[in-house]
Design a protein around this nucleic acid. Structure first.
Lengths: 144, 144
DNA sequence: AGCTTAATGAAAGCTACTTTCATAAAGAAT
DNA sequence: ATTCTTTATGAAAGTAGCTTTCATTAAGCT
């Protein structure tokens, strides 16, 4: 994992300054996210955190909470479902996603500024945008 | 509606040259799409085409078929669900979408070329991308 | 240790499709 | 026009991916 220690510290700071309780489940989910160090589905995260099947609801709630304080980013898949990624606060970016194995690569290219400007010209407020790139990674090309 | 006649002709050409049967349902759905002249949900399309509730499955199948021949583009919503838009063949573009009323505006700004290039550098093939901008349109700001 | 408020677990519910399979209707062949 | 083949449709059930409800538990402040 790349900068686990730094990230963790910054994330713990964010969590401490939020009106949040650090429960066992949340600790385990956070640890699993750090250990994985890549975007995962809710179910995969639950498995990595070694929680029982029934805890999927807690996983979703925790992801929602973490997204609320800005340390989780949701990555929509092409058809349905999402991946969730631990990010440093305010680290907006997009992804290349393999539609087979869900391997992701970071994409540092974004039209955010331009989009917001045009959106405001059209009278839109509270603007957000989605941008993800889907394809088949090398491994999955071979496999198929 | 903007160029209904021109669009319709080009679309009918595409349909004729595809191995497709022009059934009553498809005719009505196509007519509804032309009349609406904007992206709609599957349910809204069914209502506009004046089909019974049970025909939603036919709507989805027709949309899938039409998407296959390139005359329908799917616009994913921010959280879940999709809008479907009649387009001229090969008219790739993105949208501003009001997250309240689903009003959409066309967005002629796309990083497609650059994205594909980077994707191929990373070893990805069969690349596609999603980019939509969400916000509140003027009407919906007032309402809330 | 007690107290308040937030988090969890179990269960059911929900949205937006998708699949299955028997029936109907295009449209080509005769 | 009728038959035949193939595709489209309808009804019903199924599915994925969450979300809600509500009773119980446990943070963590006092």
């Amino acid at each position: 994992m790349k900068h686990a220690k730094g990230i963790l510290q910054r994330i713990l700071q964010v969590i401490e300054s939020a009106p949040l309780r650090m429960t066992r489940k949340r600790e385990r989910l956070l640890a699993a996210l750090v250990a994985l160090d890549r975007p995962v589905s809710a179910a995969a995260l639950r498995d990595k955190a070694d929680l029982p099947a029934s805890d999927l609801v807690t996983v979703y709630r925790t992801l929602e909470t973490f997204e609320g304080i800005g340390i989780i980013q949701r990555i929509p898949l092409e058809d349905s479902g999402s991946l969730y990624e631990l990010t440093e606060p305010n680290d907006h970016h997009h992804h290349f996603v393999c539609r087979e194995c869900h391997r992701t690569e970071r994409l540092d290219l974004c039209l955010g500024q331009e989009l917001e400007k045009q959106a405001h010209t059209l009278g839109f407020t509270q603007v957000a945008h989605l941008m993800e790139v889907y394809g088949l990674c090398e491994d999955c090309q071979v496999a198929s």
